[in-house]
Nucleic acid binder design. Sequence first.
RNA 1: GCGGGUGUAGCUCAGUGGUAGAGCUCCACGUUGCCAACGUGGCCGUCGUGGGUUCAAAUCCCAUCGCCCGCUCCA
Length: 539
Amino acid sequence: MPSSDLMEKIVSLCRKRGFIFQSSEIYGGINGFWDYGPLGVELKKNIKDAWWRDMVRNPPLGPNGQEITMVGLDCSIIMNRKVWVASGHASGFQDPMCDCKETKKRYRADQLEVFSGHPEVNPPLMYAFIKGDEESLKLAIKKAEKAARAAGKKFTQPVHSVSYMTLAKNADARNQVVGPDVEVPGTLTEARPFNLMFETHAGAIKDDDNLVYLRPETAQGIFANFKNVVDSSRVKIPFGIAQIGKAFRNEVNPRNYTFRSREFEQMEIEFFCHPSESRMWYEYWRDVRKNWYSTLGIRSEKLKPREQTPEELAHYSVGTTDIEYLFPFSDEHQELEGVAHRGDFDLKAHMEHSKQSLLYFDEDAWNRDAAGRSTNSFVAWLKGNPSPEEVAKYQFIPHVIEPSAGADRFTLAVLCEAYTEDKAPNADGKLEERLVMKFHPRLAPVKAAIFPLVKKDGMPEKAYALYRELKAHFNVQYDDGGAVGRRYRRQDEIGTPFCITIDGETMQNDTVTIRDRDTLVQRRIPISSVLHELRTLIG
RNA sequence: GCGGGUGUAGCUCAGUGGUAGAGCUCCACGUUGCCAACGUGGCCGUCGUGGGUUCAAAUCCCAUCGCCCGCUCCA
């Protein structure tokens, strides 16, 4: 099946069964925002709970078999504006853009360069090209050559170029600039800031003083609280702080269903360690995170860890691995999670901007090396002018490994992964198309459905009693409508892994059948062991 | 942001100026002893939204919004 058709079917099912709706749909919707319906919210909650349990409460053992310390955090979405100045988002997110009035193309103004044409050509013109784009530069040179020839001059190579930004404010200068994709000057607009952070105002008066941003990532709340956590919770390096929460980016063009939304939820860990161990922890988290997706049923051929090339890496990063999934809407793998080695970039930036010390003192290391030292006081020891390398063994800015996962993206991947069309026998034993969502039992929004085989002879009452017992422990459904076959199929379509049926034999000996969604196989078990059985199966 | 396509019931669609339809789904009752059975009855649309043309608009025109595809963007 063509992948776009498959994606449409998934979107359709999500709407029909109440996984995902378009936000404010009755008013015509709003681009880039989505609502999770009754089943979607269960699915996403199961995903977040699985992450929290597997990464925060009970993370895998470390590289040397040691326990890992992880704590959680839930920060406010709106923070002091200075946080975003320190992180670089306040400037980095305000990309200046300029438009070409002729071609309607839009360029990042800071990526446009201009050079002057032949100095004796009148009127004097400048030619714009896209930085780093050979074709664009060649084209601009060609245009300059042509203009020079027409004036009887010869233009060879631009002597030097400057950023368009340096003259974009000056209308006269702009009118001399020939845009990258036009022949005539004066079609480029001035550079306008293009802010990718949502803005609002804290306080009733709307002015520049109380301008605040909706966080574009959850990470900075963790860095801003690094000292609070260290001081309050007895954690020792290495340790991680985890957070699940909403983040907002005013994306230029939200696309591909929920994949690129303007409001989304992140599941982030900032793992703090000694600089000398950072590579080991980077590799640890890269592998742990990749494996996590596999244990929740993502097939390995769809999942691809991709180490970023040196050119792609952010300037501060020692290494980043994108964990990518092959969604049906694309021929290429798309990012589910980035595991980034961020060095000391973030804590250092916050240290500088906040003027607060975010240095970590490793008391264990200090005490371990006590023998052979004349003093036990670190402050006193520092007065002896130890080498920076010596000091850094005990006091340092921790390095950070950041596994940052998109909860909505993984939810979408789970939906895509689960979507299956197979064959199942009908009442006559003939195979018919079946639509089944093969969710991992841990993630399935409904864990089990309880049916009376028919609506008589006390079966509904018995089934309902079992339902009442189970719903204290799991999200379960009771259904007595129509033929049992139809009820099985309904549950298949929402991915319920187990169906329990009360039949005539139940009324005799208190056993029920439990039917497996994927194999259709039924087993008979005592009604008293259903709860325990489900616990074992769901994990 | 630009260009192209598209929008009628929960779903799939029919309806080219003259009383908004079909199948499926869904609900109720009956029937039904294991994989979308059957019977009867029922719910559901101011045709994406707002204007305009017309005696009359789902249908023609304009605008707008959403979705899809391609470009652009993705710190």
